[in-house]
Amino acid sequence: MSRIFWCLFFTVWPIIAIVVCAISPAMDWAFPGNREAATPLGQRIDDLFYLITGIVTVTFIGTMGALSYVLWKGSKNEDEKAWFSHGSHNLEVIWTIVPAGVLLFIALYQIDVWAIYRVRDHENRDVGPRPSHLVAEVTARQFEWRIRYPKPGTKFTTYKQIKAWLAKPHEGDVYAVNKLFVHLNRETLIYLKSADVQHAFFVPDLRVKQDAMPGQSIDIWFTVNKSGKFNLTCAELCGWGHYKMRGEVEAVEDLEAKVKELKDLQDYDGVTPPGTVPAGASEEATP
């Protein structure tokens, strides 16, 4: 009696796991952003995830099924004596080559996605982001995100220019905190810095995550193709306020107009007639 109980006990959990995994996309338990990433790259990462999950599920069911069968059959068998086995060379070759083949397939299949995500080539301008797509410098610090946009109208043509701009404050720079505006339907390039310790720039809806290392300016590029506001969180434990380190990324059609709006607020001198400052700006200050 107890044998049946225990077999059922150990079978029901894997079944529940499989059922939960299968229905979780429909129940919205799976990915942030309502199952669909807001960037084309993110969508490809999701596809990869589903592919790998599928492969692993098939393997899981197969191996669990085989294991259960063997356990069941073996426990029922009270008469046969155990015998020594020297292994089966063929079997071992099979169950080494097949998983290796599957893994190799996965590795090769995802190279492309990795390359788009992280590789750029200075020689071949088609690989990686264009300098002209620079949107902002994001400096992570305990416990907030400080953002600096270049002066609206600045066009960067080389990475050297970007480097010079990143090195120090420039006239006309627009500053913000915790709220980052990016392009909609156009590539966004941001540079990530850290003011003190390691942080990580993580926007789950965009499937973007990058550690911010003190002393480095790390480039991140993505294209958002869904309008909306996305959570920005810190994904590297950076101190007692790590849990609070939230920000917001918003994709807007006309980014230059938005940054110009921010700049007008930043240039407010208390007197200049309202025509040059957007309506409702009043006492709204930028840092």
């Binding site: 300098p131 600045t154 043509t157 080389t158 050297k160 220019q161 006309g172």
Partner: peptide, 25 residues
């Protein structure tokens, strides 16, 4: 003529030969 050791070779600019970023100011 930036000769820092870790610098990448001179970037070929997209359009203009000028190295300064265009500004409207």
């Amino acid at each position: 003529s930036d000769d820092k050791p870790d610098d990448k070779p001179d970037d070929k600019p997209d359009d203009k030969p000028d190295d300064k970023p265009e500004t409207t100011q």
